[in-house]
């Protein structure tokens, strides 16, 4: 798991990056930091304002949400996963904490670098918009279904 091309291939398995040019992704990988985490290391913390997204490349992590009774595990992450990508688009506090549950390899994509990429390659911005729009569409549809369900009750 060392070569640039290998990491690029992993990125391309994610919907967010699937349609982006391999050469551009290579630049993204080369200019961003690759981090390794040990079990228990925290990638990002709920409530903090984030400035980076993480692509989990190899290893496992869990998603924790703070409740009155303490942190509750809401999901386990395994395999290539993209987390915290909203933070590279707008300044919002993290909605959950992500913690490594074993040795974890990740690519940290900072807001600064991602914006630079969008500036250099407008295609990336269009592609990002497309991904967000399809998500919004899905969310809207889900909301409509939920409303309808609520109405029926």
């Amino acid at each position: 798991m060392t070569s640039l091309d290998d990491v690029v291939r992993r990125l391309q398995t994610l919907p967010f990056f699937a349609n982006m040019d391999a050469g551009v992704l290579k630049l993204l990988v080369f200019t961003n930091e690759r981090l390794t985490y040990e079990r228990g290391d925290v990638l990002c913390r709920q409530g903090e304002v984030g400035d980076a997204a993480y692509v989990l490349l190899d290893g496992e992590a869990e998603v924790l949400v703070a409740t009155a009774e303490g942190p509750v595990r809401v999901a386990a992450l395994k395999g290539v996963t993209l987390v915290g990508e909203i933070a590279i688009l707008i300044d919002v506090p993290r909605t959950a904490t992500i913690r490594a549950t074993g040795r974890l390899d990740a690519l940290k994509v900072t807001k600064e670098r991602f914006f630079q990429l969008m500036e250099d390659y407008p295609g990336i911005a269009i592609e990002t918009m497309r991904v967000l729009a399809s998500r919004l569409e899905a969310t809207t549809a889900e909301l409509a279904r939920a409303r309808a369900a609520l109405h029926e009750k």
């Binding site: 050469g23 290579k26 630049l27 080369f30 630079q116 250099d120």
Partner: peptide
């Protein structure tokens, strides 16, 4: 080879030349 591949398309005054 890698540098040519990565940076060939960037404008000459791009900050990445300095940084990376």
């Amino acid at each position: 080879r890698t540098m040519v591949e990565l940076f060939a398309d960037l404008p000459a005054d791009h900050p990445y030349f300095e940084q990376f």
